[in-house]
Computed example of a mutant assay.
Amino acid sequence: MKILYVTTISNTLNAFLIPHIEMLINEGHEVSVACSIEQPLKPFFQDYDIEVYQIPFSRSPFSKYNLSAYQSLKSIVYEKDFDIVHTHTPIASMITRLACKKLKTKVFYTAHGFHFYKGASTINWLFYYPIEKYLSRYTDTLITINQEDFQRASDHFFAKNVYLVNGVGLPLEACNKPVDRVKKREELGIDGEAKVILSVGELNDNKNHKIVIEALREFKNKNFKYLICGVGPLENELIRQINEFGLSHKIELLGYRNDIIEILKISDLFIFPSKREGLPVSVMEAMANGVPVVASDIRGNRDLIENKINGELFHYFELNELKGKLYVFFEKKMLIEEYRENSLDKVANYSVTRVLNQMKHIYNRVT
């Protein structure tokens, strides 16, 4: 079969979808990709001689460039006569389904987390929900990655087939790489006795790093180092907050990192305070590395973390609740070994091998 993978930007292909595309090629399918090139595509695409169509998608739903993207994509799908167009990310998926609705091509859509969910703003519900519900009529196969989205899509949308898969797949073997803990701590300037707390995520409002910084203000007398890996628009604001609280010697913004797994290997606690997620890979990476997780009680996180079973959940807006979790951690009353063991068992279900088998099953059933 001829399959076209569509994403809004190239970064998504590089970060998550190469194993999926490789699996389809190994199954005998011909795969092409379409996206806006923001980050150069990895050598994989050239090595496999994959046709790349540059489409002027914009991440803003109101951008004028999306009309050109619609026209370009519709023309490509019509001329190349693809059997399946498999689309990811909200904007690309909206445009793709509009472009394909009168064509014979089957449309697969992987929703990596709807913008409407329990606790979402009224604006998100008023804007995104009716669009997704309408476009589900032109979706042959809708693939979701968390229980809340799956249930809503199954109960209220019109897609011919709705499936739940365990995310994009975590390469568990990458988590088995040994790390010299002493050397890594020295590299990051962490003294031998300090507890290492880690968060990973873009420095924006959704990732909610501010509440962790605010909570740690209460524990100035404790020997810890809080590391935040990520870049984003709130960097200067977070630095001001850190300095204002007198925590500049205890909290460090590490920027974009390629060594997250190595940093997890020296971490004692992983905090993930997001307001919205689909199914967070960084939480899975923490689980796979045996790092206890304290995460916000939201869609996606709840799929991975069961409170008091393999980690702890808190309401992302409840500062005192988070302080309570940190108190338990610093006083060595957290069930670290129990959380570690249970997380390692659970995260095995989210391995890339397991997810690719789920995807093979879906393709075989609907084609």
Rank of each mutant, 00 (worst) to 15 (best):
M1T: 09
T8W: 00
T12V: 07
A15V: 06
L17T: 01
L17D: 02
E22D: 15
E22W: 04
I25Q: 08
H29S: 07
C35Q: 12
Q46M: 12
E51M: 14
Y53L: 10
F57S: 01
S60A: 11
Y70V: 15
K74V: 14
S75R: 14
V77G: 08
V77P: 12
E79K: 11
K80T: 01
D81Q: 13
D81F: 12
H86V: 13
P90L: 09
A92V: 08
S93A: 14
R97M: 07
A99R: 09
C100M: 03
T105D: 05
G113C: 06
F114P: 00
F116V: 11
W125V: 05
Y129C: 12
Y138G: 01
T141N: 04
L142A: 10
N161C: 03
Y163H: 09
N166S: 12
G169E: 03
V182N: 14
A194C: 12
G201M: 01
N204A: 13
N204C: 09
K210V: 07
I213W: 08
R217A: 10
R217E: 15
E218G: 01
F219N: 11
L227A: 11
C229M: 08
R240C: 02
R240K: 14
Q241P: 01
K250M: 00
I251C: 11
E252D: 15
L269D: 04
L279E: 01
V283T: 01
M287D: 07
P292T: 02
N307M: 09
N310D: 02
N310F: 02
E312I: 12
H315K: 13
E318N: 13
L319H: 08
L326V: 04
K333T: 12
I336V: 15
Y339H: 01
R340M: 15
N342V: 04
N349G: 12
Y350A: 05
S351I: 11
Y363L: 12
R365W: 13
